[in-house]
Computed example of a mutant assay.
Amino acid sequence: MISIKELRKEFTVEDKKIVAVDDVTLDIKRGEIFGVIGYSGAGKSTFIRLLNGLEQPTSGEVFINGKRFSHMKGESLRQARQKVSMIFQHFNLLWSRTVEENIAFPLEIAGVSKEERYDRVQNLIELVGLQGREKAYPSQLSGGQKQRVGIARALANEPDVLLGDEATSALDPETTDAILDLLVDINERLGITIVLITHEMHVIQKICHRVAVMEAGRIVEMGKVLDVFQNPQQSVTKRFVSQLTGVKDTLPTLEMLFDNYPSGSLIQLTFVGKKTEEPILTELIRNFQVSASVVHGHINETKDGPYGTLIVHIDGAESQIHEALQFLQSIDVKAEVLSNE
């Protein structure tokens, strides 16, 4: 669906060359919700602008639905861009137009007849849940309603791809979840491919099938969301995962834990799927001469199933603790002994 080959974008600022996107190669499947996450300055916004032709690459190629978007210009780019729509962090609505008129705007530009515009706009208003607000102006809408208008407008030309540039970061948590639920519904109903860039791991966790982690313009890690959660490889990925698990790998936190539990071992357990529902600690206590207590725990739902992290204090003879750890590994529970060094 989307094929990106050795994509690179350079800017020159005050005679200095800045590489915003650096040799990115990846494929995004049709109908997939694909997330790109990174901190500020990682190159996410430039990357997504390269996907819809708002920026042209220094080198490399972007293909969407078999069309070469990279280096496309003029009328051919304008026509192709109708099938690749975008929703924005700050909505970008026309403040002098009503909800209906904002949604109809891209259809006017495309030369769609008035009758067809009306029918399509009404269907989109129902799809995004804005019935009764058709005649309202943006100033009369909440943040979530404004973003619903933005989503409906992006869908007006029946695109194949929907791009989201930090589409929920201006919203409160409850509204964010409602918008994410709407995007999942749109993805399932219309089969549309969605690419989201964000700095919020919650967005990735809740709706994405796969995720790419960006740092300094490069994709440093990529895979199914659950796989990345379970076994993050890069330090930047571990920082993002810790946002959701609540496990903070910082020295003051570890010092406090070890002050409270001077003997035994502190173990961080990571488990997925049905393992999150099994009485693992009960089995440890029953089968080994150890005591086990939960110090900290968190379970998150992803598109592919639940993902859980526990910090557990295990006390007992060293040999018994070692056997308990081997048992955990044998049942596919990742166990990491925390260190205070």
Rank of each mutant, 00 (worst) to 15 (best):
residue 37 I to H: 06
residue 17 K to G: 02
residue 25 T to N: 14
residue 154 A to K: 02
residue 259 D to K: 15
residue 306 P to V: 08
residue 79 Q to H: 08
residue 130 L to R: 01
residue 215 E to I: 03
residue 50 L to R: 08
residue 177 D to I: 09
residue 261 Y to V: 11
residue 306 P to W: 12
residue 340 N to C: 09
residue 326 Q to K: 13
residue 162 L to D: 10
residue 102 N to F: 01
residue 325 L to K: 15
residue 275 K to R: 14
residue 263 S to V: 14
residue 209 H to C: 08
residue 79 Q to A: 09
residue 312 V to M: 11
residue 278 E to I: 01
residue 280 I to A: 13
residue 185 D to E: 12
residue 252 P to F: 10
residue 265 S to R: 15
residue 134 E to L: 04
residue 112 V to I: 10
residue 237 T to F: 03
residue 26 L to V: 05
residue 305 G to K: 11
residue 166 E to C: 09
residue 136 A to T: 00
residue 229 F to W: 06
residue 130 L to N: 01
residue 128 V to E: 04
residue 246 G to R: 03
residue 96 S to F: 07
residue 210 R to N: 14
residue 186 I to L: 05
residue 38 G to Y: 02
residue 267 I to D: 00
residue 204 I to R: 02
residue 96 S to E: 14
residue 42 A to Q: 07
residue 81 R to P: 00
residue 194 I to R: 00
residue 51 L to N: 05
residue 8 R to F: 10
residue 271 F to M: 15
residue 171 L to D: 07
residue 141 L to R: 04
residue 129 G to M: 01
residue 293 S to R: 13
residue 153 R to T: 05
residue 290 V to A: 11
residue 233 Q to A: 13
residue 155 L to N: 00
residue 230 Q to T: 10
residue 61 E to W: 12
residue 80 A to F: 05
residue 131 Q to K: 14
residue 339 S to W: 06
residue 271 F to H: 01
residue 327 F to A: 00
residue 38 G to F: 12
residue 221 E to Q: 14
residue 77 L to T: 04
residue 6 E to H: 15
residue 316 G to N: 10
residue 270 T to A: 10
residue 202 H to D: 06
residue 272 V to H: 02
residue 227 D to M: 09
residue 301 E to P: 00
residue 290 V to L: 10
residue 144 G to T: 07
residue 211 V to S: 07
residue 243 Q to V: 08
residue 279 P to L: 12
residue 259 D to F: 12
residue 44 K to L: 11
residue 280 I to P: 15
residue 132 G to Y: 01
residue 170 A to F: 08
residue 287 N to L: 12
residue 135 K to S: 09
residue 176 T to A: 07
residue 188 E to M: 11
residue 87 I to D: 00
residue 213 V to F: 12
residue 144 G to F: 02
residue 214 M to T: 03
residue 109 I to A: 11
residue 275 K to E: 14
residue 175 T to S: 08
residue 339 S to Y: 03
residue 190 L to N: 09
residue 314 I to R: 01
residue 204 I to V: 15
residue 5 K to A: 06
residue 208 C to R: 08
residue 173 P to E: 07
residue 223 G to D: 05
residue 68 R to M: 09
residue 208 C to K: 05
residue 182 L to Y: 02
residue 103 I to H: 00
residue 110 A to D: 02
residue 226 L to I: 14
residue 270 T to N: 09
residue 260 N to S: 15
residue 322 H to T: 15
residue 181 D to N: 13
residue 334 K to V: 06
residue 158 E to P: 06
residue 320 Q to C: 06
residue 299 I to E: 03
residue 263 S to F: 11
residue 126 E to G: 12
residue 126 E to Y: 11
residue 228 V to H: 07
residue 279 P to R: 05
residue 76 S to R: 09
residue 141 L to A: 02
residue 332 D to H: 14
residue 275 K to I: 02
residue 31 G to K: 11
residue 157 N to L: 15
residue 336 E to N: 14
residue 42 A to P: 12
residue 229 F to A: 02
residue 317 A to R: 13
residue 80 A to Y: 05
residue 15 D to I: 01
residue 239 R to V: 02
